[in-house]
């Protein structure tokens, strides 16, 4: 790691101020950022830890929605997001227990790793990303791998999920990293079904609209079976070709629908 100053504000206001410094970088749980820093792939002058800010933590269910503080750990979501079992189950399978102890939802979606789990849930749920300055719809938030609508210094304070009637997340793990080689989140709302895919596309998390249409008409695995595999530019690497990933999207979507019941 290159050298940097480390600050740990206690309030959101202090954090926003600290992030105003030149080359300042927010640190959530650090479970992705710290390995990146170790490889000397980033060189912040100041690292602003958000882990000491109580107001960013917590899970609240009210009026058909579930609001998760941006600094809430995956382990906490796994335990406390009872109102949204598919989301709790997703959180319980992110990384490993140590990652879940420290990693946060805000950190995960701000980073928008193309293989991360949370972006699929946020996008499939049509969730709202709440920051210190505004609210951003999930459809506007994710803008390609490692890219989001966040402005420099903007902090995710919460994510608000409308709770679906049924939902399920299916992850097929990359054999080495155990990140999602492909992950599919299916959420059924009164207004229709949303399907979001992580791990597969060079564009990062995306919605598979053909599947949404088919499943909105008939929420059954058989509705997916007839579809062509999704188009678009898929990632190809030693763990799978583009065609393999596209195929897995279809398989996992069907399985998610079946598991959602």
């Amino acid at each position: 790691m290159y050298a940097f100053d480390f600050v740990k504000p206690k309030t959101l206001a202090e954090a926003v101020k600290a992030l105003g410094a030149e080359d300042a970088q927010a640190l959530g749980g650090g479970q992705t950022l710290i390995p990146t820093l170790k490889q000397r792939l980033a060189q912040p002058a100041v690292l602003v830890s958000l882990s000491g800010i109580a107001e960013l933590k917590g899970v609240k269910a009210a009026g058909g929605s579930l609001t998760i503080g941006g600094g809430t750990s995956h382990a906490t979501v796994a335990k406390e997001a009872k109102a949204y079992p598919a989301l709790a189950a997703l959180a319980a399978n992110i990384g490993d227990p140590a990652v879940r102890s420290l990693g946060t939802i805000g950190g995960s979606i701000a980073n928008n790793d193309p293989s991360a789990d949370y972006p699929a849930a946020v996008l499939a749920s049509g969730a709202t990303v709440v920051t210190n300055t505004r609210e951003i719809a999930a459809d506007d938030f994710f803008q390609g791998m490692f890219t989001t609508a966040l402005e420099p210094g903007e902090i995710i304070t919460a994510v608000r999920f409308p709770v679906p009637e049924k939902a399920n997340y299916q992850k097929f793990e990359q054999p080495a990293s155990r990140f999602a080689l492909v992950g599919v989140f299916v959420a059924k709302y009164a207004a229709g079904v949303r399907v979001a895919v992580t791990g597969a596309s060079t564009e990062g998390v995306f919605r598979w609209t053909e599947a949404e249409k088919a499943l909105s008409a008939n929420f059954a695995a058989s509705a997916v079976a007839g579809l062509a595999v999704p188009g678009g530019e898929m990632i190809a690497d030693i763990h799978g070709s583009a065609a393999y990933r596209a195929h897995l999207i279809k398989v996992l979507t069907g399985r998610a629908v079946a598991a959602a019941g």
Binding site: P175, A176, S177, I238, H239
Partner: peptide, 12 residues
Amino acid sequence: IAGSFMDYAMPR
């Protein structure tokens, strides 16, 4: 290209 545990799959 399998130069770390991110791409070299160790049995778990």
